[in-house]
């Protein structure tokens, strides 16, 4: 178990937040949830479907995991704000993972709408966790309007491309006074480990687990990677250098004269 971190006064012991999108059914989700040891997991809001069987909230309640509602699918600040208000009503929580998408092919955030929605929701008493790009300036703006954390992407949602710009993520971590959660892009365990090594406080991960060939095994792998990343970060990695630096002393090296050169 790693040290807890704190979002909006709440201690979180697990540094893996599970996204629930993409699981083939609730049983697989429940099993992956148990392996992930996540305490928080995202849910979306959609129109009531009379044909749907079982509620995801029952799965989360049974696992003792709290729902973090999101505004997935919103393209404007207005839609995101109404969705957040609906989520507060439905789940009796002020916490919201704020997504305001600007383009349906890349699913990249719309920075202008995102900041506007974040500001309005913070003013309305929400604990806002915005999904953002890896732009350090945008991350600072979101923090300045009162977001409780910033959640930069490593690469586009569901792309599995890992952390494309680790330098930007490092800058976001360096300057942030709120927790940084890497959200989106994780493809496998090593990506999650890197996020923590770079100093992110946590990782939010859906597709890497839900769409893996074996979601339970991947949930466990990513949980362990997150723990490894935290340990590695606190252990302090060696600096990168361009040339080798031998770790074995040259002192006392025996000399072997070749018989060819011997007189």
């Amino acid at each position: 178990m790693t040290e807890p971190f704190v979002i909006a006064g709440r201690e979180l012991h697990s540094r893996l937040i599970l996204g629930t999108g993409g699981f083939t059914n609730h049983d697989v989700l429940a099993a992956a949830l148990a392996e992930s040891a996540a305490e928080l997991c995202t849910v979306a809001l959609r129109r009531l479907d009379p044909a749907a069987r079982g509620s995801i909230l029952d799965v989360l309640d049974a696992a003792g995991v709290e729902a973090l509602p999101n505004t997935a699918g919103c393209f404007t600040a207005r839609d995101a704000i109404v969705t957040a208000e609906l989520a507060r009503e439905a789940f009796e929580t002020d916490w919201i993972k704020l997504e305001v998408i600007g383009d349906d092919r890349t699913l990249l955030p719309d920075a202008v709408e995102l900041v506007a929605a974040a500001e309005a929701l913070v003013d309305d008493g929400f604990v806002v966790l915005p999904y953002t790009t890896d732009d350090p300036v945008l991350a600072r703006r979101l923090e300045d309007v009162g977001c409780a954390a910033v959640m930069p992407l490593g690469s586009p949602i569901g792309s599995g491309m890992g952390i494309c710009n680790p330098y930007n993520i490092s800058i976001i971590v360096e300057q942030a006074r709120v927790p940084v959660v890497l959200d989106a892009g994780v493809g496998t365990a090593s990506d999650a480990a890197l996020a923590l090594e770079l100093g992110c406080d946590a990782v939010l991960c859906a597709s890497a687990i839900s769409r893996a060939h074996d979601p339970c095994a991947m949930a466990r792998a990513i949980r362990l990677a997150v723990e490894a990343g935290v340990l590695a970060r606190s252990a302090g990695r060696i600096p990168r250098r361009r040339y080798a630096e031998g770790s074995t002393s040259m002192q006392g090296l025996p000399l072997f004269e070749s018989s060819d050169t011997a007189q």
Partner: peptide, 26 residues
Amino acid sequence: IPRSAWQSTKLRDGDQLEVVVAVQGG
């Protein structure tokens, strides 16, 4: 419309209601 107001909120002709629940996502 908060749950506490559902009982007292009468609908009008032409109203558009959205009724949403939790689903997998994010």
